[in-house]
Amino acid sequence: MPKNSKSKKNNDGKRDFLIISTYAMAGIGAASVAWPLIDQMNPAADTLALASTEVDLSSLEEGQSITVTWRGKPVFVRHRTPEEIKLAKEVSLDEMRHPETDEERVSNEKFIVLVGVCTHLGCVPLGQKSGDVKGQYGGWFCPCHGSHYDHSGRIRKGPAPTNLEVPSYKFLSDNIIKIG
């Protein structure tokens, strides 16, 4: 490889700096191009637009449940009876695997809102329809591996590690909730 003449030695530092910054700059360029290519796999604008959904509860009678789709998953909304609310509140946290009070899990005690996906391996528990098996604690029962959930969607028996997830939601009015 040809060598710089001696008189040019002083310029070596300058020369290296120029060359290194050129390649560094090219590297920065290549790295910033990577981001759009990665980010395109994140949820698109139309997918994000469906990330929240509004549910009208005015026609949901006491003791009835509805299932709505939210982010591709079922969400259970149940209008609980006074008896169910009572049972959910009375139970001692000592007997629970994942202790949470009922108050922590509802914003209006009449309505319980749950992501209908068993925390064990992702099956959809039964208990939404009147004829369904509801398990020993009267809430929901996962048919895959036998997890029993109570009226507050808390795990009471079976392999599931945690309570049914409560999605983030808020009441826009007395009867309309916005999930997500």
Binding site: W35, P36, L37, D39, Q40, N42, A44, A45, D46
Partner: peptide
Amino acid sequence: MRDVNHGWLI
């Protein structure tokens, strides 16, 4: 072109 992140660019 409209919804995918940076889709128009790609």
